[in-house]
Design a binder for these strands. Sequence first.
DNA 1: CCGTCCCGTGGAAGCGCTTCCATGCAGACG
DNA 2: CGTCTGCATGGAAGCGCTTCCACGGGACGG
Lengths: 338, 338
Amino acid sequence: MVTIADVAKKAGVGLGTVSRVLNGSPQVRDATRKKVQAAIDELGYRPNPLARGLSLGRGHTVGVIVPFFTHPSAVERLRGVVAALEGSGYDLVLFNVASPFHPDEPFHTLTGPHRADGLLVMSLPVPPNDLERLARARVPVVLVDSRAEGVTVVVSDDRTGGRLAVEHLVELGHRDIAFIGEDPENAFGFTASSNREEGYREVLRAHGIRYRPSLVRHGPHDHDVAKAMALDLLRRPKPPTAIFASSDVQALGALSAAAELGRTVPAELSVIGYDDIDLAHYAGLTTIRQPLFDSGYLAGRLLLDALVSGERLTPGVTELPIELVIRTTTAVPHRGAA
Amino acid sequence: MVTIADVAKKAGVGLGTVSRVLNGSPQVRDATRKKVQAAIDELGYRPNPLARGLSLGRGHTVGVIVPFFTHPSAVERLRGVVAALEGSGYDLVLFNVASPFHPDEPFHTLTGPHRADGLLVMSLPVPPNDLERLARARVPVVLVDSRAEGVTVVVSDDRTGGRLAVEHLVELGHRDIAFIGEDPENAFGFTASSNREEGYREVLRAHGIRYRPSLVRHGPHDHDVAKAMALDLLRRPKPPTAIFASSDVQALGALSAAAELGRTVPAELSVIGYDDIDLAHYAGLTTIRQPLFDSGYLAGRLLLDALVSGERLTPGVTELPIELVIRTTTAVPHRGAA
DNA sequence: CCGTCCCGTGGAAGCGCTTCCATGCAGACG
DNA sequence: CGTCTGCATGGAAGCGCTTCCACGGGACGG
C-alpha cells in the first residue's frame, strides 16, 4: 500500500505538496509538480478514496435507491442515472429495495449522512421525517417517479397518461374498458398506478361511461398475476372489449391471457400498456411512453450539479412529457364482442 | 454530525466502549451496553462508514464492472449479484463500461485498492497485469462470463451452447444455416459470441455441411444492426432456412427482418437465439438458456464468502448448465425455401 | 489476608488524506 | 542595500473510527 508519504519521500518534498499536486492546486511550481508526478508514476501510487473522503467529509458517491427487482422500467431509469454520472468522479452505490419495507426502516439505515453524498430515490415514497433529516444533514435528494413537498422531483404526469390511454380506447369506440393495475394500497407505496387509474376514471366520467368496479383489478406488479386477472376479466359473461394496464408488463400479461383463450388482438380485444419498455416495441404493444432513461438522466444531472456546486437543490417538480404510442394491440371493437 | 465522542460523553463512558458496543464485542457489561445504546438512540447517532472504512482498511463495498448498456443479459446478472449482496453489509458500487476502452485504461482507474474490497467483472476480459496487481493488493476478483488464468470464474460453456443450437437446427433438417454474432475482434473484448460461433462451425463440420463464410455476419450487439444483417441474408438469391443468432436481442432483430420481408417464422425461416432473456419468452423465441441470474448470484456469493472469511478465493472455473429451450421460432424447413 | 488473574474499561495511536499555518526565500521597491 | 511582499513549501492537526495497551478493581486461591 503506497501512501502519500511514500511519494513525498521519494520526490523529496512534503506531504502537503504531494496533496496539492494530486488536487491540481496552482500553488505548485512546475518543476516540483513534475518531480512529484514522476514519483507517483514510479510507485504506482493511487490515492485512497476512503481517506480522502473522510478528510473531505464526503465520499464522492451517489446513492440510488431503486426497486430493482420489481419494475423493468426501473432499470431503464437507472441507465439514465449511470449515464449522467459517467465521468463525474462520483460513484454510484446501488441500494436495492427488494421487498416492501417496514415503514421508515430502511431509509433510516440507508440514509445516514456519509452513506452517500446525495440520494436518488426511484418510485418509492420517502417518509417526511427522513426527508427532513436528510435536509438537515444537507444531503441533496432527488425523487424520480415519486413526489414529496419541498424536494426536487422528476416525474411525468401519470393521471394525464392514464387519460391519454383511455381516451384512445374511447375514441376507437370502446365502452367496456377494464383496468389492471397495482393495489392503491400496495406495500411499496407506489402511486403511479393509482394515478393512472384516476385518469381512467376521469375519462369514463367525461364520456358518461358508467364506472364498473368489477372491471377493475388490482394485484402486485407481475406478468403472471396480471395474466390471471385478465383471464378472469375475459371469462366474464360480457367481457370487456379493451384493457388498460398500468404497465407494459401487466399489458403483456393481458396479451398472454388473450392468447390462451384464443381471443385475437386487437380484433376481439384491445390492450394498451404503459411505459414503453423494450418489450412493448417487440410485442407491438400500444402504450403510453414515458421517458424513462431521460428521467434518470435528468435526476442524475440535477443531483450532480448540486453536489458539485455545493448549492442547495431548488425544490420543485419537473414534469417530463408523455406520449401515446399506437402500435398493433388496439383497434375498433369487434361487433361480436359486445 | 454526531460522533462517537458525543455518544461517549452522553453515556459517560469512553470512546472505546462505544466502539465495542457498536461492533457487538462481548467485552462489555450489559448495564454499560444499555447505557450506550440509550445514548445512541437519543442522539440519533449513525457511524460514519468512511471513518470506519479507513480505520478498518476496507470500505465494505463490492465493485461491479459491467457493460450495462450493451447487453440486457448483464442486467439480469446484476440482479443476481444484488440478490447475493442483500443484507451482507456490503454496498454495491456500479461501474459502467459504456464504451469500449483503451487497453487497460479503466481497470487501472477502477481497480486501485480501496476503490472496492472486491471486484466482480462481467463479460469483460481483464488484462493480466491488472489481475496481477489486484492479486498483489489482495483484492478478490470474480469473473462472470469471461475467463482468465488463476482467477475465480463463473461461466457457461458457450461453445457447447452454440453446438446445442445448431444441432437442433440440423436435426430439424436445416442445411443452410446462417450465423449472426459479434465480431470476434470486437472492441469490448467479448468472447461469448465467437465461442458460440465456434460451436456453430463444429456442428456443421460434424455433419458434413459446408461452411460458407457468406452466411456468417458480424456486427455490434444491437437489435437494428442484427436486423440489417438478417435482411441482407434473407435477400440473397438462395437465403438460409435458419438463423442462429448469438444473442436473443440479435435473434429478435432477425425476427423483425423476417417480418419486414413477409417471411413467416418458422415456416419459411427458423430462428434461434441465445440467453433466454425475458423478451425471448414473450416472443416465443427458441433459444439457449443460460442461468443469467444464477451466474450473478453465485459470483456474488463467492466473492462475499472470500471477503467475509478473509481467505483467498480459490481460482477455478465454475460452469453453469445451459439448456435448449424450444419455443415457436424453429421448425422443419419449408419445401419451397430451398 | 495478600497476591494473582481476569474482566471491563479508558484513551492514545494510527488509518491516509486535506488544509491551515508557519516558514523561508526570491524578487520588488524605496 | 535593507525591508517588505507574496509565492512555494513543509508539516501538524484533524476528519471519525478501531484497536491495542494499560489500568483498576473484584474474585479467587493459597
